[in-house]
């Protein structure tokens, strides 16, 4: 019994392309909804500001720490002398 390969191939193509496009369309729909929900209930701009300020605050902290450590070292050296 000979299977018609071409017909099999066309069936594959039909099923394959449908699945791929269906998957991506569903992905697009869900993705858009997700973005809308997140933008509405968890608005980003504030978050950006927060993280930005957070990072600058961290930087300031680091600088303070460095200053404190240098001061300590200087102090120690002075005592040593």
């Amino acid at each position: 019994m000979e299977v018609n390969l071409v017909w099999e191939g066309i069936k594959f193509m039909f099923l394959g392309m449908t699945t791929v496009l269906l998957f991506l369309v569903l992905m697009i729909v869900l993705m858009s909804y997700m973005s809308k929900i997140i933008q509405k209930y968890f608005p980003e701009p504030q978050g950006v500001v927060e993280t930005a300020s957070g990072s600058t605050a961290q930087n300031a902290d680091k600088k303070k720490k460095i200053a404190a450590i240098t001061a300590a070292i200087m102090h120690h050296k002075k005592i040593g002398n």
Binding site: N4, L5, V6, E8, G9, I10, F12, M13, G16, M17, V20, L21, F23, L24, V25, M27, I28, M31, S32, S35
Partner: peptide, 29 residues
């Protein structure tokens, strides 16, 4: 994420896979 509908282009390009599959089996047959 900022332009979701462009995902369709990534889907369409997969036609290369299935089109060639048909071509390959047709040539074999």
């Amino acid at each position: 994420l900022s332009n979701p509908k462009t995902a369709l282009l990534g889907g369409a390009a997969q036609f290369g896979i299935f089109g060639t599959l048909v071509g390959a089996v047709a040539l074999s047959q």
